[in-house]
Design a binder for these strands. Structure first.
Length: 448
RNA sequence: UGGGGCGUGGUCCAAUCGGUAGGGCACCUCACUGUUAAUGAGGACGGUGUUGGUUCGAGUCCAACCGCCCCAGCCA
């Protein structure tokens, strides 16, 4: 027990700082408190090596029975993922993973995981199905936590970039009266008083309205597609960032897309180096992602594919194989522009020089990252747009507000949609998109 | 929705030709003062997705169903 004088002198000193593990190395030689969970523990005789994690990183602790029997007793036999608050001196230690470790002097166990029902996720191998069932716990592992931090950094970088370019965030609704992509992939919901509504597939139509109101705008939010696709690059719920600008043309949007993607990548490289290292990502490849990106026309892309032995012919859309083949030709994301309009959405503008082409573009990420952006110039003529809506058998009444945008001061305008998860999956180098969103929603999976 | 693959203790896997269902990890105990997903010794728990069929005998062969994975289509 400290004497009265001891506690007086302690009060005169600075209090022990509570630090995040990611900043622990800045406190070498000092005493700090860390608050987190027991990630793992190794034992060696009368020495314990508890590994703590706090969400910002992991750090090894060390405690010896001889020097600190109380802390030793508190940690001895402590179960994985028990929550703990530990205080001790940070010391540089080449033998410790991470370069420094904490010499524990005081330990408080906040909650002890009972032996009768131990933490289900081991440090060793697990199958995908099991891990997805345990997603609420899986996100505690260093790899998953790193991915989620990179996702957050990507979002921050994207919004900073858009705001810096003079774009205003204008959120689009999630309940919508009609489709804006294919009608077969709509999630239908019962709205009030037997009305039907649908979860949005894209903020596109609404962002065209706000572009006419504010000039340069973007939306960022979740979108929903009931696609029956079980591939490594599909989610039924995913986040999209969709810029739209009045008086903008195709090339303006390609330039904006290049700037946006490189801003995201460079921001992650600069601010999330530790997390990229945890993932084992090749940072040198990411560092090269700066504008300008290679741009090829659809015509040229078909020739590139044919030269590489792919059976693609003019008029075909590109699938996963074709995307991978094209992206291998370049170290940076590649922009493919002016697709045949037959394969594009009803609202796409046609090329005045070659009316069978749409003023559209896709951006394909390198290293097999797939399509991360799709966009282009919109159809600004009232008559053409109405005809397209009728040709697509879309409910005309539901699109009256959208047609108003062409009745009242229609202007050339363009935009695109960036798939957040596909972008983050590429930046992280993850094999499957399901790892880059906290709780993935996929075909036949809505738990947890 | 098509094509292919797979379902075995909590978890990751093995089981020859159809012939006694087994191991690693996790959990518990002990040893070890520098471990690196520690190691060594011991212990406890516990299983063939479901239904039916063939057979003396089925984890294994057959059929249907259920679930999962990968690829394709569609897209971000």
């Amino acid at each position: 027990m400290p004497t009265f004088n001891d506690s007086m002198s302690q009060q005169a000193q600075a209090p022990i700082p509570i630090v995040a593990i990611e900043h622990a190395a800045e406190h070498v030689g000092g005493v700090v408190t860390i608050r987190g969970w027991l990630y793992n523990m190794r034992e060696s005789g009368k020495l314990l090596f508890p590994i703590f994690r706090d969400g910002t990183g992991v750090m090894q602790g060390v405690v010896s029975l001889k020097e600190n029997p109380e802390a030793f007793a508190a940690l001895k036999g402590l179960t994985q993922e028990s929550s703990v608050i530990a205080t001790g001196k940070i010391q540089a230690e080449p033998r410790a993973p991470g370069g420094c470790e904490i010499h524990i002097s005081v330990v408080e166990v906040v909650q002890r995981v009972p032996e009768s029902n131990p933490y289900p996720i081991q440090l060793k191998e697990h199958g995908v199905d099991f891990l997805l069932d345990q997603r609420h716990l899986w996100i505690r592992t260093p790899r998953q936590a790193s991915i989620l931090r990179i996702r957050a950094e990507a979002v921050r970088a994207a919004r900073n970039f858009m705001d810096g370019q003079g774009y205003t965030l204008t959120d689009a609704p999630i309940f919508t009266p009609a489709a804006c992509e294919g009608t077969t992939t709509l999630f239908e919901v019962n709205y009030i008083d037997d009305q039907k509504a649908y979860l949005t597939q894209s903020g596109q139509l609404y962002v065209e309205a706000t572009a006419a109101a504010l000039g340069k705008v973007y939306t960022f939010g979740p979108t929903f597609r009931a696609e029956k696709s079980k591939t490594r690059r599909h989610l039924t719920e995913f986040w999209m960032l969709e810029p739209e600008a009045a008086y903008a043309h195709l090339d303006d949007m390609i330039e904006l897309a290049e700037g946006l993607v490189s801003a995201i990548v460079q921001s992650v490289v600069q601010n999330r180096a530790r997390e990229l290292a945890t993932l084992g990502r090749d940072v040198a490849r990411l560092a090269k992602i700066v504008p300008p990106f290679p741009r090829i026309s659809y015509d040229e892309a078909v020739k590139v594919l044919q030269k590489a032995g792919n059976p693609a012919k003019w008029g075909d859309d590109f699938g996963g194989d074709e995307e991978t083949l094209l992206s291998k030709e370049f170290e940076k994301p590649v922009v493919i522009h002016r697709y045949p309009s037959a394969m594009k959405a009803f609202y796409m503008a046609t090329d005045p020089v070659r009316p069978n082409l749409a003023l559209s573009f896709d951006m394909i990420a390198p290293e097999g990252g797939g399509e991360i952006i799709g966009g282009g110039e919109r159809q600004s003529s009232y008559e053409t747009l109405l005809r397209r809506i009728r040709e697509a058998n879309l409910p005309e009444e539901a699109f009256q507000w959208y047609l108003d945008l062409r009745r009242y001061g229609s202007v050339p305008h363009a935009g695109f949609g960036l798939g957040l998860e596909r972008t983050v999956a590429w930046v992280c180098g993850t094999e499957h998109i399901r790892e880059v969103i906290p709780f993935p929603r996929m075909l036949y999976r809505v738990y947890p």
